[in-house]
């Protein structure tokens, strides 16, 4: 990825043509805030959920006693869950309002929708063919198929983990309309789905979005909201062309991110990724020792 902190002068010294690099907006401030809330609460939930899932492991007990025992762990687990629930409800309300009340286009279908379509299937197959050298690289739109998968995995995950979590939290209440065996089932579902989310986010999402060579070491666009024209053109050529064709490209122009924002994003992003990778190692070690 281009080094956003570098000055134009520095780029000129490296032998680049001296023109002002343009930046385009990909994510709004609200979307970036949503991601920040999502990843902080997710890290919190993972860090407090894993010791409970692997409560027999050495590190879980050490961690628990270090932070003040199980009481502290469940307190922060519930706190993060509440914050994430609020964020989730805000998101659902927004979809409802924009898609159903305001009849905004591109929410449920079309090139900018998160909903999967035939192109995603073709892109997936084409991408796999390209990986093994059997075809050209697909031209991705605004959201590539793996990004849509990430979105729906998190969406489904929040519904499933959230519901099963609240069913345990308020078990006597849920017992009014759930059969008794469901109270056993919710723990199995909660822990397995949580484990899937943790393993997926801390390995697949990290690599697909941040650690793959085209974005290494981190895709800053979710933090700064903007990406360079070159990045836009190479990563999402179909969207770029559509913008040009529809004459909307200039409307998407954004500011080059400030140095403090880039640095702050790096610190926040690398902290999140590091915590995630540590938790991934602990999870795998505990899982295979079980």
């Amino acid at each position: 990825m281009p080094d956003l902190a570098k000055t134009d002068a520095a780029q000129a010294v490296e032998g680049k043509p001296h023109f002002k690099e343009r930046f385009f907006v990909r994510f709004t401030r609200a979307q970036r805030s949503m991601h920040a809330v999502l990843f902080s609460t997710f890290l919190g939930l993972a860090a407090t959920g894993l010791p409970m899932r692997f409560s027999q492991s050495y590190w879980a007990r050490k961690f628990a006693s270090g932070v003040g025992g199980f009481g502290t762990i469940i307190f922060f687990h519930k706190l993060c869950a509440l914050v994430l629930t609020v964020a989730f409800l805000i998101h659902v309300k927004e979809i409802f309002q924009r898609g159903l009340l305001n009849r905004e286009k591109g929410i449920f279908w079309g090139s900018t929708s998160m909903v999967g379509n035939w192109k995603d299937v073709k892109d997936l197959l084409g991408h796999l063919r390209w990986m093994v050298g059997l075809g050209p690289k697909p031209q991705f739109e605004r959201y590539a198929y793996w990004e849509k998968f990430d979105y729906w995995a998190v969406f489904w995950g929040m519904v499933v983990i959230g519901f099963s979590g609240y069913a345990m939290w308020f078990a006597p209440f849920f017992a009014h309309f759930l059969p008794g065996w469901a109270l056993n089932a919710v723990l199995v579902i909660h822990s397995e789905e949580g484990l899937l989310a943790i393993l997926f986010i801390f390995s697949i999402h990290f690599v697909n979005t941040h650690l793959r060579p085209d974005s290494f070491p981190m895709d800053m666009v979710i933090f700064t909201g903007v990406e360079s024209e070159e990045e836009f053109r190479t990563k999402r050529p179909q969207e770029y062309e559509r913008m040009v064709r529809e004459g909307k490209l200039e409307k998407r122009l954004g500011e080059k991110p400030a140095v403090w924002l880039v640095n702050f994003s790096r610190v926040a992003g690398f902290t999140a990724i590091s915590i995630g990778l540590i938790l991934l190692v602990l999870t795998l070690s505990a899982y295979f020792r079980e």
Partner: peptide, 27 residues
């Protein structure tokens, strides 16, 4: 339920690990 969850976990992770490794190499 446990079997279903385990299959879901195994299939999603298996598919994406292969997908990601191939992608990494190619990139």
């Amino acid at each position: 339920i446990r079997l279903f969850m385990n299959l879901l976990l195994a299939s999603v992770l298996t598919f994406f690990v292969i997908h990601t490794v191939l992608w990494l190499i190619r990139s």
